[in-house]
Design a protein around this nucleic acid. Structure first.
Length: 262
DNA sequence: AACCATGGCAACCGCGAGAGC
DNA sequence: CGCTCTCGCGGTTGCCATGGT
């Protein structure tokens, strides 16, 4: 859908909005190839684009620039985003600097669609400490780690990126070959209410205590190694088994909330 | 088949910082 | 010092594809 901005200067100076056409892309690419980036308002006029300078800049940086990566994020990239977001919050451009080829817009969209969705399911603020514990220890990290290892994609460059800002979890797990020990390392490293209490070939049982007293009735249990546990958080919650206790509907979310206020 | 809801993502908007004059 | 312009950032919007009913 294409639209035009209101203008009092006649149709000739109306600016286009909406989706970019292939022809516009071509004009922008060829102009920048010949004259370089910058001075976007001037560039828009000289390139014959009836777009704002801002629009041209955005199109170039987020889509047309040759080093922009397209396609799904790798597990490494997802891990890095989770770590960096827990550190810096919604500083998308800062986070993007550590993911070559990924734009702040793409990372922002990833966070809002994928990660926030999990937070909504749990009725937890995605920026809250409890949610950060959840994604590190019981969902995203455990899911991503085996993917990373099976894909064996952790290049030297990735590792350099991970250590550049002293991202602790990545440092902890680098070189690990045993996924369960890795999960244990993650849980152990974080100052987390989660702890690995049992670990064998079939499952790793994690204990989540939402009160300081460590009394059993105030804890939930997760089977971290079950297949479903690695898929999606709602399934993980289903694997939370504590007799006569429904983690979701019977106060689990409230426990997470109160923990964040401590 | 038609309608509706939802998710993913490209693009837009408003604001503030910084540079140049 | 103040004005203008450019640039970059984070938040938001709206289109479109997909899946469910």
């Amino acid at each position: 859908m294409l639209s035009y901005t209101n203008s009092s200067k006649g149709d000739a100076e109306q600016l286009r909005r909406g989706t970019w056409s292939a022809e516009e892309d071509s004009l922008l690419i060829h102009y920048i190839a010949r004259h370089g980036e910058g001075h976007w308002n001037l560039l828009a006029k000289r390139a014959g684009l009836r777009r704002t300078g801002k629009s041209c800049r955005l199109r170039w940086l987020n889509y047309l620039k040759p080093d922009v990566k397209h396609g799904n994020l790798t597990p490494q990239e997802e891990c890095l985003i989770l770590q960096l977001h827990s550190k810096w919050g919604n500083r998308w451009s800062k986070i993007a600097k550590y993911l070559p080829g990924r734009t702040d817009n793409e990372i922002k969209n990833y966070w809002r669609t994928r990660v926030n969705k999990h937070a909504r399911h749990l009725k937890i603020d995605a920026n809250s400490t409890p949610f950060q514990h959840v994604i590190r220890c019981c969902n995203w990290m455990p899911r991503l780690l085996p993917e990373m290892e099976s894909l064996n994609q952790t290049s030297q460059h990735d590792q350099e990126l991970m250590t550049m800002e002293q991202v602790p979890v990545q440092e902890q797990i680098s070189g690990s070959t045993d996924i369960m020990s890795t999960i244990s390392q993650v849980a152990e490293y974080q100052t987390s209410p989660f702890s690995i209490i049992s670990n064998n070939d079939d499952y790793a049982l994690a204990k989540y205590c939402y009160h300081d007293d460590n009394i059993d009735k105030n804890c939930c249990y997760y089977n971290l190694a079950s297949t479903s546990a690695f898929e999606d958080f709602p399934y993980l919650v289903g694997d939370c088994h504590k007799p006569d206790y429904n983690c979701v509907n019977d106060g689990f979310a409230d426990g997470l909330w109160s923990m964040g206020e401590q």
